[in-house]
Amino acid sequence: MMRPYRPKDNVQKKAYYTDRFWIAPRIPEEDVSQDKVYAADIEKIKAKFDIKKAYIQRGQLVVIIDPVINKELLFFLRDELGYDMLMELSAIDYLAQDGEFEVFYQLLSLSKRKRLRVKCRIKEDEAIESVNPVFRSADWSEREMYDMFGIKVNNHPYFKRILMPDDWVGYPLRKTYPLHGDEAAQWYEIDKIFGKEYREIVGPEIRDAAWIDKTDTEQFARYGHEVPKGAPYDSEPVKIDSFNEDAPLVETFDLKKSKIVDRDR
């Protein structure tokens, strides 16, 4: 049997079948001039900063910038344009396709009732400047981003893993990280509590929900080889009388043998 090919750089689950001629539709990227508020904002941003692209997608303005100006742009957006809250900050892993991460900042303006998303792309080994001086909420978001993707952030006040333990190996949300964890992850609690030599005693994790232990006669019975509950695995199976393999599948009807319930009919 051949082992199926699985790409190493992206272990995310894939659809098992895709039509050869199927082309995914796209959400339209609308022109910024459609919305007056956004159009005015983008004029002001363009006057001061060099932006790569701007469009409206599903009612929200998306601005794509160079990562070096992220802090200045957010300062400008907060102080001049009234985007006074940073609602979300995280990244997307495009390492397999482009060797880059996409970092996005989701902003909200309370006075204009508008939302804006700033996006920029950085290389794998690059670091990004912290926006913690602009918005305090970036403090934890950037730590989470580092924890999940391994993106380094410059000038962060307390740069440390936040969700995973400090001695964790790997960055879980990268596409190269398997869903069930690598070896260090799978033995993490055993190594920490009992030590590595206990790995054999405790045994590996059972990740398959349909897994059944063949030798366990307490909880499971083997089909066709049923032994009494708790008996040794290799003991003789219980004889089941009612099961006779030689019996014909359909018996011929015999009036003498049968019990007739309703003779009138």
């Binding site: 659809a15 995914a24 796209r26 959400i27 997608q57 599903r58 929200q60 609602m87 939302r115 998303r117």
Partner: peptide, 15 residues
Amino acid sequence: VTQGMRPPVGEVYVP
């Protein structure tokens, strides 16, 4: 059920 729906390419943030 077997393959799942395929949404268009793009991104949304919905509060």
